[in-house]
Simulated scan of single mutants.
Amino acid sequence: MAGFRNGRGGRNNNRPPQQQPQQAPYGYNNAPPSPHHPQQWPQQAPQQGGGGYGEPEYFGDPYGAQQQHHQQQQYAANTPGHTQMFSVNEDPYGDAATYDAGGGAPVPTGPRLPWKALLSGIVLRPGPTFLQMRDHAVWGPALTVTFLYGLLAIFGFDKARDEAIDAPLSMAIPMILMTGVGFVVAGLIMGAVTHTLARQLGGDGSWQPTVGLSMLIMSITDAPRLLFAMFLGGENGLVQVLGWLTWLAAGALFTAMVSRSHDLPWPKALGASAIQLVALLSLIKLGML
């Protein structure tokens, strides 16, 4: 039997040994491959504790188990109910740029308006004018108009007008100039308060346009009342009615300006202008100044 198995006996001594066909893995077709469709074996995942493809499991690969454990951790991290850990300096979202509110300089919404178009726009086109000038400082028109308004405002109060008219010229001129400067300082303070409240309520506007436009609104809206008060007196009934109407108009313009300049809804914009409106009503409209 041993000689027969080793090829030393029998009639098959001169025949070449037949090549045994390669056995396909379990579960696949054992048909021989054709020249046009070569047989391809699908890749199998390495077994637990085994080596790479084609190696028996009992050889053992110290790196195969680590790789499989790493793949299992990644799979578990991406399944619902699991979280994936990242290092402190690692960005899990790649190089995507994050939004930085207020990080860059604001982009102007339009060119700067000349002073004539600015003054007429506040009265005739308040919304587009405030939106276009939200990123432009208006110190020149604001300081000039407010100072001129302060020079005439002293004649809108009965007692102050009588004192200025009866006083000598050397005393009347400094009194009028000080009134003009006082209105400029008051306008700066009230505009700064309005800007601060707007920022506290979530606004993102700049302080220079807010303060300058608030000074212009304060002066322009009170001009009709001041014009009649210079001739009729501050206690006249028509002057009082005009004072209330122009105060409501000032509230609407303040709300529109803060809303456009700070991107706030109108309730918050009105709340940011509340202190300045109360100050104007008490000091100027009702003649308490």
Rank of each mutant, 00 (worst) to 15 (best):
4 F>V: 11
4 F>S: 10
7 G>W: 02
9 G>D: 15
16 P>G: 00
18 Q>V: 11
21 P>M: 10
22 Q>D: 11
22 Q>W: 07
22 Q>I: 10
25 P>I: 07
28 Y>F: 13
28 Y>C: 02
29 N>K: 11
29 N>W: 06
30 N>V: 04
31 A>P: 00
31 A>H: 05
35 P>F: 01
36 H>Y: 03
37 H>S: 01
37 H>P: 00
38 P>I: 07
38 P>W: 00
38 P>H: 04
39 Q>F: 02
39 Q>Y: 05
40 Q>A: 02
41 W>E: 06
42 P>R: 00
44 Q>A: 08
44 Q>M: 08
44 Q>P: 01
45 A>L: 10
45 A>N: 03
47 Q>I: 09
47 Q>W: 13
47 Q>T: 15
47 Q>F: 10
48 Q>S: 09
53 Y>L: 13
53 Y>K: 14
59 F>K: 14
59 F>A: 12
60 G>T: 04
60 G>Q: 02
60 G>M: 02
63 Y>V: 14
63 Y>E: 14
64 G>M: 02
66 Q>R: 10
69 H>M: 08
71 Q>F: 08
71 Q>I: 07
72 Q>F: 03
73 Q>W: 06
73 Q>V: 11
75 Y>V: 15
75 Y>K: 15
78 N>Y: 14
79 T>H: 15
80 P>H: 09
80 P>F: 11
81 G>W: 03
82 H>P: 06
85 M>R: 12
86 F>T: 10
86 F>R: 09
86 F>D: 05
87 S>H: 14
87 S>F: 14
91 D>S: 15
93 Y>G: 06
94 G>D: 06
95 D>H: 14
97 A>D: 13
98 T>P: 00
104 G>R: 13
106 P>V: 01
107 V>K: 12
107 V>P: 00
112 R>W: 06
112 R>A: 10
115 W>C: 08
116 K>S: 14
118 L>T: 01
118 L>E: 05
120 S>T: 11
120 S>C: 05
121 G>Q: 03
124 L>F: 13
125 R>F: 13
126 P>W: 11
127 G>V: 13
130 F>Q: 02
130 F>K: 00
132 Q>F: 01
133 M>T: 07
136 H>T: 01
137 A>P: 03
137 A>T: 07
137 A>S: 10
139 W>C: 04
143 L>E: 03
144 T>M: 10
145 V>W: 00
